[in-house]
Amino acid sequence: MIYLQLLWSFIQIGLFSIGGGYAAMPLIQHQVIDIHGWLTLSEFSDIMTISQMTPGPIAINSATFVGIRIAGIPGALVATVGCVLPSSIIVSILAFIYYRFKGLDAVQSVLRGLRPAVVAMIATAALSLTAMALCNSDSFTSDVNVLNAIILVAALLILRIFKLNPIIVMAGSGVAGLIAGLL
């Protein structure tokens, strides 16, 4: 019974969170705290903090965490499956439609139109990630973390000039942060 509840709750979270992690957060809070009381507010804020510190979507992280808390590893599996089930079906259908019709002139024209907007959208994400790294806030403030500014510029130069694998650059930045912090 608890498995069905977990599954259904996270299906709803997966289905209605459109536009990334920040859209998912209030939905998760509603299901997990308000409706079922699976987590306390302070546990919820812990898992949100940990989500920022670990890779992966907030919804998947929460599904795993809540599932384990409520019903162990099987619970985590059920909640995670629920979370990705709606997008698996919907996105597979969209992928099919895209590859079926993308050759059409009219579809090409629509796609040509939206590509620059996608670049702009990723640019806004780049800005907020930069604000987060340098000022530890959603927007830029005068309180800049100089160490992170140096790491960011160095990492960017390495990426532009040497075309190094971004994963190595990210891991290297973490190591640089650790070493500089310990000195």
Binding site: Q52, M53, T130, L134, M170, A171, G174, G177
Partner: peptide
């Protein structure tokens, strides 16, 4: 500390 340094690397990758 690692996470803080990494956040700068992540921003660089997206930029």
């Amino acid at each position: 500390l690692v996470m803080s340094g990494m956040s700068a690397g992540v921003a660089a990758v997206v930029i």
